Simulated assay, not measured.
Amino acid sequence: MKLTISIIILVFSLGCNSNAQEAKNQKTYPVSKTEAQWKSELTTAEFQVLRKKGTERAFSSKLNRIEEPGTFVCAACGNELYKTRHKFESGTGWPSFDRPVDEKNVDYRPDRTGGFSALEVLCANCGGHLGHVFNDGPRNTTGKRHCINGVAMDFIPKKK
């Protein structure tokens, strides 16, 4: 009985320490809003992906078909994320890029949810979840594939 109680206390304290450490590791972003504010400003789909780390259905984004010159920006805060010239057809069903506009515009965080290990990509301005980066991109460029949810971005065409 004592052993069982000791194990329960140990497991509980490890869980609490893990949660405390996770909260301590949370980054503060320049654009910071309450969940209610984000919910009122974003569409349901944008909120689900950007704030709740969801994933849109493959091949559902109109951004997959964009080839004209321009910039893809965060749908939550307008931060410049990707350029059309770095976009490529990966066949995965999500907009894919070999690099961001600037590395300082995105953050990376290890993600071990969903049964696989990947590198999560977040907006460095508001912390919105964008997608993931993998090492199976074009070998003639960076070798990276930024697999990004289209609903997490807006497209701004280049002015002519």
Rank of each mutant, 00 (worst) to 15 (best):
Y82P: 02
N140C: 00
K39T: 01
P157L: 09
K33C: 00
V49Q: 00
V133E: 03
E41G: 03
V73G: 02
E68K: 14
E22F: 11
V101T: 13
N19L: 14
N149T: 03
G91P: 09
I5T: 12
F134M: 10
K104C: 02
H129G: 06
K87E: 05
T84K: 04
G15S: 09
I66M: 07
A36V: 09
V106M: 07
S117Q: 13
S40K: 13
C16L: 15
V101M: 02
C123S: 09
E80G: 06
S13H: 04
N19I: 12
A118T: 12
H129A: 06
K2I: 11
F134S: 07
D102N: 13
R139V: 11
S61D: 10
K27R: 14
K160V: 09
L3V: 13
R109Y: 09
E103Y: 07
H86R: 02
V11D: 06
G114F: 06
A36H: 08
T4I: 15
I8P: 06
S60Q: 06
V133F: 05
S60T: 07
Y82I: 02
H146T: 01
P100G: 11
F47G: 01
D107N: 15
H129I: 03
R139Y: 03
R145T: 00
P138G: 03
E22P: 02
K160E: 15
T44R: 09
Y82A: 05
P69K: 12
A75N: 03
S90H: 04
A118V: 09
I66W: 08
L130C: 05
A152M: 07
L14G: 11
T44N: 11
P100W: 01
A124Q: 06
F116T: 15
A20V: 12
L14K: 05
D111V: 08
C77W: 03
D136F: 08
G91M: 10
H129P: 08
G15I: 07
A152N: 05
L63E: 09
K2R: 14
A58E: 14
K2E: 15
T44L: 08
S32V: 07
Q48S: 12
C77E: 05
